[in-house]
């Protein structure tokens, strides 16, 4: 590989994305490193000592986003800081979630793609990506495949990536209505979610999307709750007059969100607390988003 520097057998720094993809096929055991905010903790504590690191952090072409046809394509190098500084109006839920991640130091390095690859049930990018129906674009020498976010996670810290595959980008539909994200933790900063929830209204299609974090073995959608809300809003004529939602509709939604979860007891909180918190978050985010929609007016979107 002439285009690639090999400063040592244990470290590969591709100069282009194409080289990175080729190197991953040649060295399927090589571990990608991007922001390093998950991986370095493992290395520092000697939980793993990969034979080879594949450094993606110097690929400028990954540190980009592109807007086209109502979609923002986030390159795999895009950080939380990038999202919250530049993409707040296109991707409000993801930007809200990005604001809650770690500290400035973590947000400056940590990437959305790294969050996906780690696939923690508590990853903060996941609920917004679920609520907005994002797609993960994965590449290997065999080609590109687009994985709908709902099928990306296969278990706690597991995902569909094959050993020769890398995440190239994430495609997120631009917001066409109000979005919310809410996270419960033990303090305001530097905290892993005890439970989290995202909600996104797509006004033109009169659809709501949802995403739940930290309340099941993987991040999940609350599909039942979303279908219920879509049906009730249409049936009761809420889209016509934007009146305040009835307590019945709000509770019906919140109960179904809570029912979608399969939480466990762990060090960050008992299962019962998570279900309770989720119900409260679902209620609040729905009220916030609906009132934003009523204020902006349906025609603003």
């Amino acid at each position: 590989m002439a285009a690639v520097e090999k400063p040592g057998v244990d470290y590969l720094r591709p100069r282009t994305w194409q080289d990175a993809v080729a190197l991953k096929t040649e060295n399927p055991a090589a571990v990608p490193i991007n922001g390093g905010t998950d991986l370095m903790v493992d290395l520092n504590f000697a939980r793993s000592r990969p034979p080879t690191l594949l450094d993606l952090s110097h690929l400028d072409e990954l540190r980009r986003w592109e807007k086209s046809n109502g979609t923002v394509e986030l390159g795999a190098g895009v950080t939380y800081t990038d999202v919250l500084e530049h993409l707040g109006s296109d991707l409000p839920a993801l930007a809200l979630a990005s604001r809650t991640v770690g500290s400035p130091q973590i947000r400056n390095r940590g990437t959305i793609a790294g969050n996906l690859a780690t696939a923690s049930p508590a990853g903060d990018a996941h609920p917004p990506l679920l609520a907005t129906g994002a797609t993960v674009r994965v590449e290997s020498m065999r080609g590109i495949r687009d994985v709908p976010i709902g099928r990306f996670f296969t278990g706690p810290k597991r995902n569909v990536l094959e050993p020769d595959e890398l995440i190239r980008s994430v495609l997120v539909p631009s917001a066409r209505g109000p979005q919310q994200f809410s996270k419960v933790g033990t303090r305001n900063a530097m905290v892993i979610a005890v439970v989290s929830f995202a909600l996104a209204f797509d006004v033109p299609s009169r659809h709501v999307g949802t995403g739940i974090g930290s309340a099941a073995p993987t991040p999940i959608e609350a599909a039942d709750a979303a279908a219920y809300l879509d049906r009730e809003l249409a049936r009761e004529g809420y889209w016509e007059d934007h009146r305040e939602l009835s307590a019945g509709v709000v509770d019906g939604f919140a109960d179904r969100v809570a029912a979608a979860s399969r939480p466990i007891d762990d060090v960050r909180g008992p299962a019962g607390y998570r279900v309770h918190a989720l119900r409260v978050m679902a209620r609040r985010t729905l009220r916030w988003a609906w009132s934003a929609l009523a204020t902006d007016g349906i025609h603003a979107h």
């Binding site: 400063p7 040592g8 244990d10 470290y11 720094r13 490193i33 922001g35 390093g36 905010t37 370095m40 903790v41 290395l43 520092n44 504590f45 690191l53 450094d55 952090s57 110097h58 770690g102 500290s103 400035p104 130091q105 973590i106 400056n108 390095r109 530097m190």
Partner: peptide, 28 residues
């Protein structure tokens, strides 16, 4: 050594980062 305390904060190519979370290879 896990990004929690910030006592290792440095600038890396102009960004504030935790030096404990940057690998030597990346810093080359």
């Amino acid at each position: 050594e896990q990004g929690e305390c910030g006592s290792c904060s440095v600038y890396l190519d102009g960004d504030l980062v935790c030096a404990c979370l940057v690998s030597a290879g990346q810093a080359d």
